[in-house]
Design a protein around this nucleic acid. Structure first.
Length: 491
DNA sequence: ATAGGGTTAG
C-alpha cells in the first residue's frame, strides 16, 4: 500500500505560510445590505397578504441588488415556500429589476429541495429566455437535490443533458457529478459512471481522489486503495490530498493502527504533511480514545512549524469533551483565545454540546451568549443541541422558550428542530402538549418540511387518545394533502 | 460548487 507513496516525486511544494484560517480576510458585507435584508425578511415572513407584500416590495425606496436578494433568500432558507414566493413576486412584478444568475441558483436550489421539479425547469427556461446562462454550478445543485431525494439516475440524466440547456460538459463538471454521487454515498453508481466515461473526459487525479474518497466515506478502504492503484497504473501521480483521503479513511473505518502506520510512512517518505494531515490524526486518535497520543501529535505539529487551524482546535476540543472531560476542553478553548484565534460556530457548538452532556445547562447558555459577542451568533445547530438537551432533561418549557426565541430571530428552525420538539411533546403525557405537537406539525409543513408518516401517526394517535377528535381530523386532512396517508384510510 | 481536516443522536 505504501508503494503509492513512492510516487510522490518531486516533493510537493511547501505551503508558504500556515496562518490560522481566522487570520485570513473575510469579505465584509455592506452594513446597509445586511440591515435592509433583515427588515425585508421580517416583512416577508409576517405578511399574510401577497398583494400588499408585492406593493411593499415594489416601493421605489428599495434598491434591489443581487446581493440583497441573495441575502434574503439565504435567510429564508428554512422557509422555502416563502423564499420562492418572494423570488417570484420580484420576477413577475418588478418593472426593471432582473434577477442574477446566483439568485436563480438559490431559487432553483430551494425549489429542488422542496421537490418542485416543475418549478426547477420553469426557472431554467426562464434563465435562458433572459439570456442568463445556467452554469455548471446550477446543474450541480439540481443533481445534488435529485440524489438527496433518492433519484441518482435523474441526477445523471440532467448532467448528460446539460448541453441542451446551453451549458458545456467538461472534466470539471464530470468531477462535480462524481463528487455529488460519492458524497451521497452512491459510490457504486459513481464508480460505474466513472468507468464508462473516464476515457472520454480524460479523468485526472481529482477524479480518482473523488472516487477513492467515496469508498472511504462508506468505510471500504480496500476499494479506495484499488482505485488509487488503478490511477497509478494509468500514469497519474498521487498528491497530498490523495494521502490525506486515505489517512482519514483508515481512521473513519476504525483502522486506527493502519492509519497510524500510514501517517508514519507519510512522514518517513518526506511528504510535506500539512495542517489537514495533523488535524485528521488528532481527531482520529481522539475519537478512538487515544487522548494522550492525540495531544502528542498536536504538540508535534507545532514543533514541526505547522500552525494549527481553528479546525485543528475544534478537533482537539471535541475529542477532549467526548473522551476526557469538558474542563480540559475549555482549557484548550481558552488557550486558543490567548493565541489570537477566533472561534467559529463549530467551536462553540462542540463546547456547548460537551457542557449539555455533563448537564451543565447554565454554562451552555453562557457560551451561547458569548457567541453573540463574537459575531457568530448561535445558529440552528446551536439551538437544536440546547433544545434537545432541555427536552431530554424534561425541561420542555425551556426548550419551547428557545424555540420561540429563534422563530422571531434571524435563525429559522429546520427539520431537526421540529422533529426534536414534536418528539418531546410525548414525554409528559399532557393533552395540551399534543395540541402543541399538532400545531408544530402544521407549521413545519407550511415551511416546506415533510414530516415522516410515523410522525403523523404518532401525533394522530396522541390526539385521538386525549379526546381531541376535532383537531385529529384536521391533521388527517393535512397528512392526506402531503401524500403521507396510511393505506387503510380513505377521506 | 472539481478533491482532503472540526458540529449530529440513534
Amino acid at each position: 500500500m505504501f508503494s503509492l507513496l513512492s510516487k510522490l516525486t518531486p516533493p510537493l511544494s511547501k505551503t508558504a505560510l500556515h496562518l490560522p484560517k481566522s487570520f485570513s480576510t473575510t469579505t465584509p458585507q455592506p452594513q446597509n445590505t445586511t440591515s435592509a435584508a433583515a427588515i425585508l425578511t421580517g416583512l416577508i415572513l409576517t405578511s399574510t397578504n401577497p398583494k400588499s407584500l408585492t406593493q411593499s416590495l415594489l416601493s421605489p425606496s428599495i434598491n434591489w441588488t443581487p446581493l440583497l436578494v441573495d441575502t434574503i433568500l439565504k435567510q429564508l432558507w428554512n422557509h422555502g415556500p416563502k423564499a420562492l414566493q418572494f423570488f417570484h413576486l420580484l420576477l413577475h412584478n418588478h418593472p426593471t429589476y432582473i434577477h442574477s444568475v446566483s439568485s436563480f441558483d438559490h431559487a432553483i436550489d430551494i425549489a429542488a429541495r422542496l421537490r418542485h421539479y416543475a418549478t426547477v425547469f420553469t426557472l431554467l427556461h426562464r434563465m435562458r429566455s433572459l439570456r442568463l446562462h445556467p452554469t455548471p454550478k446550477t446543474f450541480a445543485i439540481i443533481a445534488e437535490r435529485y440524489v438527496a431525494a433518492g433519484k441518482p439516475d435523474k441526477a445523471l440524466k440532467i448532467f448528460l443533458s446539460m448541453h441542451e440547456h446551453g451549458c458545456f460538459q467538461d472534466l470539471h463538471s464530470f468531477n462535480t457529478i462524481l463528487d455529488v454521487l460519492c458524497k451521497a454515498k452512491r459510490v457504486e453508481k459513481a464508480c460505474n459512471f466513472f468507468k464508462v466515461l473516464r476515457g472520454k473526459f480524460k479523468a485526472d487525479v481529482i477524479s480518482y481522489n473523488i472516487i477513492a474518497n467515496g469508498w472511504c466515506l462508506i468505510k471500504r478502504t480496500n476499494m479506495a486503495l484499488e482505485t488509487l492503484k488503478e490511477m497509478v497504473e494509468k500514469g497519474l501521480t498521487p498528491n497530498l490530498t490523495t494521502y490525506n483521503i486515505m489517512l482519514k479513511g483508515y481512521f473513519r473505518a476504525g483502522q486506527i493502527e493502519e492509519g497510524w502506520k500510514f501517517f508514519l510512512e507519510m512522514k518517513k517518505r518526506k511528504c510535506e504533511i500539512d495542517v489537514v494531515t495533523y488535524t485528521t490524526v488528532v481527531h482520529g486518535l481522539g475519537v478512538a480514545g487515544e487522548i494522550k497520543r492525540a495531544r502528542k501529535v498536536f504538540d508535534e505539529m507545532v514543533r514541526e512549524g505547522v500552525l494549527p487551524s481553528v479546525a485543528t482546535y475544534n478537533a482537539l476540543i471535541q475529542v477532549l469533551c467526548k473522551k476526557d472531560c469538558v474542563e480540559n476542553a475549555i482549557l484548550v478553548f481558552e488557550e486558543m483565545l490567548r493565541k489570537g484565534y477566533v472561534p467559529n460556530s463549530t467551536t462553540y457548538n462542540v463546547v456547548i454540546r460537551g457542557l449539555c452532556h455533563k448537564e451543565q445547562m447554565d454554562r451552555a447558555i453562557e457560551f451561547m451568549d458569548k457567541m453573540r459577542d463574537d459575531e457568530c451568533g448561535p445558529n440552528v445547530q446551536t439551538y437544536n443541541i440546547v433544545i434537545r438537551y432541555f427536552c431530554d432533561a424534561g425541561e420542555i418549557e425551556k426548550g419551547l422558550e428557545l424555540f420561540q426565541k429563534m422563530s422571531c430571530g434571524d435563525c429559522l428552525p429546520n427539520l431537526d428542530t421540529y422533529n426534536i420538539l414534536i418528539g418531546a411533546m410525548f414525554v409528559r403525557k399532557k393533552p395540551d402538549d399534543l395540541v402543541v405537537a399538532g400545531k408544530l406539525l402544521i407549521e413545519m409543513v407550511d415551511r416546506g418540511f415533510m414530516p415522516r408518516r410515523l410522525t403523523f401517526n404518532r401525533v394522530l394517535d396522541g390526539l385521538l387518545l386525549t379526546g381531541n377528535q376535532g383537531f385529529a381530523k384536521g391533521i388527517l386532512r393535512l397528512q392526506s394533502r402531503c401524500g403521507r396517508l396510511p393505506r387503510q384510510f380513505k377521506l
